[in-house]
Amino acid sequence: MVTEDDGKEAVKLARDAIETYLETGDFVDPSRFELSSIFKEYRGVFVTLNKEGNLRGCIGHPYPDSQLDNAIVDSAISAATRDPRFPPVELPEMDIITIEVTVLTQPEFIEVPPEELPENVEVGKHGLIVKKGYYQGLLLPQVATEQGFDSSEFLSHTCLKAGLSPDEWRKDAQVYCFEGQIFKENTPRGEILEEDFEKACR
C-alpha cells in the first residue's frame, strides 16, 4: 500500500504536472522530485479534478502499464485537457480546482477453485481483472457498490467487460483482484488527506 507521505507527493506531482503543462506546454520530468521507490513500480492510477464540488475531469491508467510517476503525470494532464466530457482546463481555474489521486495496488491472482471465487471477492473493497487469452477486462472497486452487484454478479460483469461470456469465471478465466487508495486536497493547494475508499465508493 502507499504511505501517507507518498500519497501527498502523488497529489503534488499531479498538480505540478497540470500547472506546468497549462503554463508552458511542457511535461514535467518526475525525476526532479524526491520520490520514493514506489513511484517506479508499475501501478494503475486515476486523477480526478473537482471544481467547487463538481467533477471537472477524470482520466487514468486502469492497468499497471506504466511506472506510477509517469502514469500520474500522463493521467493528470489528460484529466485536465483530454476528458471528452469537458472543455480543457484553463490555468486560472487551478485556483479553484481540487485534485484527487487514486492509486491502485498491484493486481493479485485469486488462486482458488472457481466455485470459491465469490467468497474471495469483497464488494466495495476489491476491483477485478479477468483475463483469458487475448481478452482482458477491468472494473474498479466502486462499480460493484454503485451498481448493487454481489460478488458473483461483479465477476460476471467483469467477464462481460472483457468480451467474454458472463459465466467464464466459472470455467478457466484468470481472475485478479486489486484495491485502491484515494488521496485528495481538502481545498485547492490545501491539506492532502487519505480518504476511506469504501466510503468514497458509496
Rank of each mutant, 00 (worst) to 15 (best):
E4L: 15
K8V: 10
V11I: 02
Y21N: 15
Y21K: 14
G25K: 11
G25I: 09
D26Y: 12
D26F: 11
P30K: 14
P30T: 14
P30Y: 15
F33S: 14
S36G: 15
S37Y: 14
S37P: 13
S37W: 14
S37D: 15
E41T: 11
Y42S: 15
R43I: 04
G53V: 10
I59A: 12
I59R: 10
P62E: 05
P62F: 05
I72K: 08
I72G: 05
A76Y: 11
S78K: 08
P84Q: 12
P88S: 03
P92H: 08
M94H: 01
I97C: 03
I97T: 02
T98R: 08
I99H: 05
V101N: 07
V101A: 06
T102R: 04
P114T: 10
E115I: 10
E119Q: 13
V121W: 04
K125M: 09
K125F: 10
K125R: 11
K132M: 13
Y134L: 05
G137S: 10
L140S: 01
L140C: 05
P141R: 01
T145K: 00
Q147H: 03
Q147V: 01
G148W: 02
F154Q: 00
K161C: 02
E168C: 09
E168K: 12
K171C: 01
Q174A: 13
Y176C: 05
G180K: 11
Q181S: 06
F183Y: 01
